[in-house]
Every structure is written in C-alpha cells, then in structure tokens.
Design a binder for these strands. Sequence first.
DNA 1: CATGAATGAGTGTTCATTCAT
DNA 2: AATGAATGAACACTCATTCAT
Lengths: 195, 195, 195, 195
Amino acid sequence: MRTREGNKKQDILDAAIQVFAESGYYNAKISRIAETAGVATGSVYLYFHNKEDILFTLFDRIWLELSEQLQVIVDRQDITPEQKLDGLIDMVFGVLTNNPSLAIVFVNEQSHLIQKGVGDFNVYYENFLDLGEKVLQEGMDNGEFSPDINLKIIRLFTFGGMHHLIQKWAQSPDSYPVEVMRQQVKSLIKKGIKI
Amino acid sequence: MRTREGNKKQDILDAAIQVFAESGYYNAKISRIAETAGVATGSVYLYFHNKEDILFTLFDRIWLELSEQLQVIVDRQDITPEQKLDGLIDMVFGVLTNNPSLAIVFVNEQSHLIQKGVGDFNVYYENFLDLGEKVLQEGMDNGEFSPDINLKIIRLFTFGGMHHLIQKWAQSPDSYPVEVMRQQVKSLIKKGIKI
Amino acid sequence: MRTREGNKKQDILDAAIQVFAESGYYNAKISRIAETAGVATGSVYLYFHNKEDILFTLFDRIWLELSEQLQVIVDRQDITPEQKLDGLIDMVFGVLTNNPSLAIVFVNEQSHLIQKGVGDFNVYYENFLDLGEKVLQEGMDNGEFSPDINLKIIRLFTFGGMHHLIQKWAQSPDSYPVEVMRQQVKSLIKKGIKI
Amino acid sequence: MRTREGNKKQDILDAAIQVFAESGYYNAKISRIAETAGVATGSVYLYFHNKEDILFTLFDRIWLELSEQLQVIVDRQDITPEQKLDGLIDMVFGVLTNNPSLAIVFVNEQSHLIQKGVGDFNVYYENFLDLGEKVLQEGMDNGEFSPDINLKIIRLFTFGGMHHLIQKWAQSPDSYPVEVMRQQVKSLIKKGIKI
DNA sequence: CATGAATGAGTGTTCATTCAT
DNA sequence: AATGAATGAACACTCATTCAT
C-alpha cells in the first residue's frame, strides 16, 4: 500500500518489471502485477490501456534513458570517437546491469515489439541506433575508423552482441563479470573497426 | 488426406515454423498448425507431447544441424583457424537465411528455452558453443588470435551479434543483404581478435 | 444480473445439484451449471477450485447436516436407544427425501468420493457413522440390543439399505412412499438387532 | 496376445473389469482396456458397439449369474424359505467377493445403468429381485415371515445393504471379513422379518 | 480515483470412434 | 477379422478487461 500519490504508475511499472522477469510476458498475470504494486487489479487500467501497453511503456522508458545518456556522450566535444565508443559500451552495460530484472525483460521480450512496430518506443529505439551510427560516422570521417564498415550492420551486430551477453549475465551474473564483458567488447569492437 | 508415410511429423514441424513465425509462440494455435500441416488437430498430439514440445523439437533440430555442420568445419586439417572462423560465420548465416521463417522462430523464441533449460537441445546448443570456442582456442594456441580474449565472452558476443542481424534480416531481407552481413561480421571479428 | 450478495456460492451449489442429478457428474458441464445459476462460466471458479470441488462441497454439506441432526438425537437424555434409532431413520429419510435432486446426487456420485478420500467431508461422514454406532452401542450396553451384533457391519448395512431405497425412491417417488419405507426399515432393524 | 480364438470378447470384458475397477468408468480409456486385453484398440469395436455397451454387458453377465444361481436355490424343494434366504445371502456374497475387481465395478457404476434403463440387463436385474421376492413371499405364505413386510421395500433394502457392505469390503477386505458379514446379515434379516 | 467481483471469449488437450489397409 | 493411425468434437479452466459501487 504505497503512500505518496502520483507514484502508482511507476509502482505498476516496477511491479511489471519484476513479474515479467520472473514469468515472461505471456505468463505474467495482471492481477499479480497489481498485487505486487499494491493496487487493485482494475487500477492498472487507469494507468495503462492494456497489458501490452505496460510492456511498451517499459521499453519506451528504457530506450529513452539509453537515448538520453547516449546523447550526452555524442554531444561531448572533448573526446574522440573512439572514446565515445567506449562510453557507449560502458553506458549500455551500466544501465542494464544496474537492474537485472529490467535487463531480463529487455532482452527476452524484445520480439513482441518487433512484431508490432507500434508505439513511440520505436522513436527512441531508432534514435538510439542513429546516435550510435553517428559515433561511428564521426570516427570514419576523421579517419579513425575503417571506411569499409557498414554502419547499419555494425551497429546492429554490436548491439546484438551486447544484448546476448547481458542475457547470459542476467542468468548467472557470476559467470560473466560486467567488467570483463565491457573490456572484451570494447577491445573487440575497436580493433575490429579501426583502420 | 493421407500423404506418404513418415512425413506427418515433419509436416507438422514445417507448419509450426510458419505459424510460430507469423504469430509468435503464444499466439500460435495448435488448430492452426494442424490445419496448415493438413492434419487434424488431435494428430498433432500423436507426434508431440504438447505445444512446448513442438518448439523444443524445432530448436533441437536447428542446433543439431548447426552443430553437425560446425563439427565438419572444426575437424578439417587443411585450413587455418582464421579460415575456420570464416567458415563458421558463413555456415551460420547459410543455415538460418536458408529458411526465413525458421530464422524468425529461432531468434524470437529463444527465451522460452532459456527459461526452461530442459531437453536435449541444450546438449546441441552447448556443443555448438564449445565447437566455436575450440576454433578460437586453436587460433590462440598457434598465435593467430590474441591471447587476451575471453573465449566464453567472445563466442557469446559473436553469436548474439549474428543472431540480431538475422532477426533484422528476417524482417526486411532487402535492407540487410546476406553477403554484406557475412563480410562485415567476418572482417570485424577477425580484426577484433587478431594479435 | 446482480443478486443479493453472498448468495452466489449457494446459487451455484443449487444449480450443480440440479445439473448433476440430471446428467451425472461426468456429463455435467460447468457452463450449464453456471447458466442454471445465472452467473458466467468463469464465476464458478471464483467460488470453487474446480469441478470436483463443487461435488465435494455438496457432500460436505450433506454429511454435515446429517451429522448435526444426528448429534441432536444422540445427545437426548429423554429417549431410549430404540427411540433414537427410530429418530435416526426418520431423520435420514427426512433430509434426503426433502430434496430429490440432492438425494440423486448423493446416492449416485458417492463413488467419486470414496475413490479419492480427500476433503473434510470424510470427517463428517465418519462422524455420522460413529454417531450411529454410538446409538447401537448404547442399546447394547443397556441390554436392549443383542450383544452379538457387529457394530461396524450393521451400521454400514443399514446405511446402505436406506441409501438404496432412497435411490429407487428418487427415480419413482410414487412406487416407494416415504412413510412406508421408514416404517419398514424401522421395523426390520429393530426386530433384527433386538435381544 | 491370447491364443485361442473365440476368447477375445471375454478377454476384453475381463480387461474392462480391471480397468473400470482401477479408474472408474469415465476415466477408463478404451485404449487401456484393449491393451490389457491384448488386442488393438479398434478390435474392441468388433465386439462392442461402444464403451457403454461394455459396461452394460458386464452388468448383464453379473445379473445373469446372480439370477441363475438364485433360480437354483428358489427351485429347491428340500429347504425352507428361511434356508433359502440364507442361501441367497451366501450366494450373493460368494459371487461378488469371488472377484474383487468385479465387485468394485458392480457397486460403483450401478448409477450409469439406472440413469439409462436400457439393455437386457434390466431383465436379469428384475428377474433377480423377483426371485428374491418369491423367497420372501413363500415364507410369508407358510407363516414363517411376518405378513407385515413390504416385499419390494425389504428386498431393495436388503440388496442395498449387502451392496454397500461389499463396496466397503472391496476397499479394505481385511476390515470386513466375508464370513462375519454373511452371518450378521443373515441374522439381522431373518430376525427382522420373522413373525 | 479506486476497487475487485464478474465476465465470457478463447484454447490446449483428451479420447471415443472410425476406416484405410 | 484385425489393426492402430487419424479424426474432430467436446470441455474444463484461464485471465485480460470491464463496471457497478
């Protein structure tokens, strides 16, 4: 029974992260999410249109956060494209490993969104990838990165690789130390795209 | 509607690939799969224990094929580890882009399996990753690949990257030509892990 | 179609008595019970775990009522064991012939419960038989009833005989007048167990 | 895989007794009965119209046997009605306790038949009760049994009582020794209906 | 805004019965 | 006669969503 008004929507989202992570989207019951959030079942529908809307809102927020943080990195004038790439990788691992349940939902339920293609979340998703592309482009323009790389492909590959690592990490955090993952990915990518 | 004996199980699997690809596992109806396969609903249960069993069998077969083909590559004595890596990448793209629907199912429904961890398919999956690791190890041993790479992480990253590329390719094959994907991935990985 | 609160569970039980009596337990459809009760199919599951639970609850209530009423008879100090036996017989016929549908369910579906042996209903059942045994024992102790009778067997035989009579009565009430049944049973039992 | 021809129908009946006794009529699968009988599923339908027909045939046979044996007793000229009553009781216990599985089916699945009222088995059932009635009538005519007894009711009560005892006996044979049951029932009935 | 009882459409699974061989 | 793979109707149960309070 949360006290402060105005937190209910966030409470429900937080509850949904937990429940989706535990059971997966399709096996997650609205009643369970409501219970976890400390609200009545029907109240969920005061804040969300339907079950899918909860998931979309979650992704929306994740992509927004990733996008905003990446924007800061991209906008910096004091670091090289290579350093920006490092920052990007650190940031993604940071955001997702910061909340294991969220990471699980993020990597496991991706496909629902792809199949629909609806919602604003796509804006942030595309925006995120575009920013990543910008970093690569910048590096190509100033000769740091190889002119032969296909931006769209490399950005997808890199994102998919990290995505998969985080999925495994969420299952057994001890087997895949975050620090080692970061360092390996940075090294691989940078060597891989340099001139 | 009798067809030649011995094809029903495969007919159902083929139908399941289509239906799972179209609707996703949870929205796929057994009755639809049966209809697509040209059999009665009940017949599905002559060949599979339940819905989940169909999905597991599909994955089982994919991993088995990937495993078998990779084994051939790994066993070759006439090519270098680097060439084996090229072969691995070509093979994975080949197998999965050969059947777009299968590729969609493969990349979208992965999470169900991970959450369960049952079935022999895990054997093939682990086997596949072990073989990939063997290629990398071989290259490290003979000085072709950097001694600093973490095998487990690199193999997961690489697989996740290809996985994601194939997911995008399955959505819009024209935006991501298979040839370009192969070449880019080969180039990135090889440069990324070389000395 | 809201009715006064607190009646739904009883409405469903009443409907189940009718439907079970008409079709038998296995041929009774939940949807039919719900319809008869004036509620939606799903509502049945708000009050009962599953179909079996409805049946068990029915038996639970019947045995409870039989038990409670018998307890009153057993506790009386102003009548002889023989009179208590009369009272017992009157009571059982009274309770069951009061609701023919209930009687049908009671006598026809007994076997499901016996095969399971779960639920509290067993408590009331055993309790009922124990109380009946007590009446017999009392009569044996004060020399009214023969010392040669085997309590367990006589109580089961008597109950089974009444049970069967009620089954026939439920099928054609006119062929087996309740009054005659009562009188005949009383007479047979009392003469049969007296010294 | 039975060998001698001409036994299949009986094999299936024997198998059905076992399976019905174990699982109850509704939970018994035709495939299981066939398997137990050592024939193919479809073969069951060469000998029986449907599942119900198997049950009806079983009851048919039991009632026929009970009827035939009772006929012998009734026809004897050398014993009194009281002795015939003893014989009847011995015979019923004998037939049913001879095959516990059969007894279980007999007592548990009675209700299916009653609800239908079809099949020839009714003939034998009625015949059996009529023969029992004849014994009682004979005793009333020669002054051994009370003229006040209602034949239909007493015969049903008696049968129901034995029926219930056998049901309990089938569940735990050790708690209810057949000899004691016989003796108690004989004593109760005879004392109960005598002048 | 909040509740949670009520709804009823939707579907995986079973199994008696059929029939091509 | 015998088989057993195939059929498809049937139904218990679930749960996202609604709405009277």
